[in-house]
């Protein structure tokens, strides 16, 4: 099976500190993957590199069927190529309504000129309403997103990601600050999404990861320590030493 994203031999250094060290990673086009690792393992930096926020010092990142290099593209080009990202802290446009937030994320032409003349068609509205239903925000559609609860903001952000229809979803600690019920809902959303696209979840919470029932990659000091099912990696002595055994 051809891989959707192939990261090979990537390193990045901040002021002498090697945040990512010869990291290689790949994921298929419809796969759910969890990345775990202790603090400072380079999880967020890894996401920064894939989304174009941070330029690696060396290594290559290949993307899609044509094996394009992502290194030559900027953030918005990468996003348009089909990489969606959810941040650790919920980042939605608090000043705008849930509807506007979703409308902005909808997969449409993103050039300024066409956005200027864009007027939503009935099917766009339907799509937004569907998404709102999916993330449980149908009633909140015309409220300002700043007024939503923390969990609702997390979902709104996931909803925006889905609206983008990305081929790869990078999700940074989605369960942080959620109630148990909300977590279950989130798990379902991610699993559902992974049926049609690649999803990478960075998470601390072992219970949450276990519930995802997927392959797990363990990062440590900027490189891959172990890979496999959760049960497999938790038995790995290295992993126990650096992460669990402390």
């Amino acid at each position: 099976m051809s891989q959707l994203l192939e990261v090979s031999g990537v390193s990045v250094t901040f002021d002498g500190f090697r945040a990512i060290n010869n990291l290689s990673f790949s994921i298929g086009s419809a796969e759910l993957r969890a990345i775990i690792g202790p603090n400072g393992a380079g999880k967020t930096t890894f996401m920064d590199i894939v989304t174009g926020k941070t330029r690696p010092d060396e290594g290559s990142i290949r993307w899609g069927d044509m094996s394009q290099s992502l290194l030559k593209m900027n953030e918005s080009q990468i996003a348009r190529a089909g990489v969606g990202r959810k941040f650790q802290r919920p980042t939605v446009f608090e000043d705008q309504s849930v509807y506007d937030n979703l409308a902005m994320a909808l997969k449409k032409d993103r050039a300024p000129w066409s956005v200027l003349f864009f007027r939503p068609k009935p099917e766009d509205r339907t799509r937004i309403e569907e998404l709102a239903a999916e993330i449980g925000l149908s009633d909140q559609l015309h409220r300002k997103s700043g007024e939503l609860s923390h969990g609702q903001k997390q979902w709104l952000e996931i909803g925006m990601l889905l609206a983008q229809e990305p081929r790869l979803l990078l999700v940074d600690e989605p369960a942080a600050g959620m109630t148990l019920a909300e977590r279950e809902h989130t798990t379902d959303l991610l699993k559902e999404a992974a049926k049609t696209r690649a999803v990478v979840v960075v998470e601390h919470d072992m219970e949450f990861v276990r519930r995802l029932e997927c392959k797990v990659t363990v990062l440590h000091e900027g490189s891959v320590l172990a890979e496999g099912s959760l049960d497999h990696v938790t038995k790995n002595q290295d992993v126990i030493d650096v992460y669990l055994g402390r």
Partner: peptide, 18 residues
Amino acid sequence: VIRGIRDDEARVRFLGYS
């Protein structure tokens, strides 16, 4: 979009807007 840029430029960028 422009109000989004005002409030959180990076987020707008990750939504794919240049």
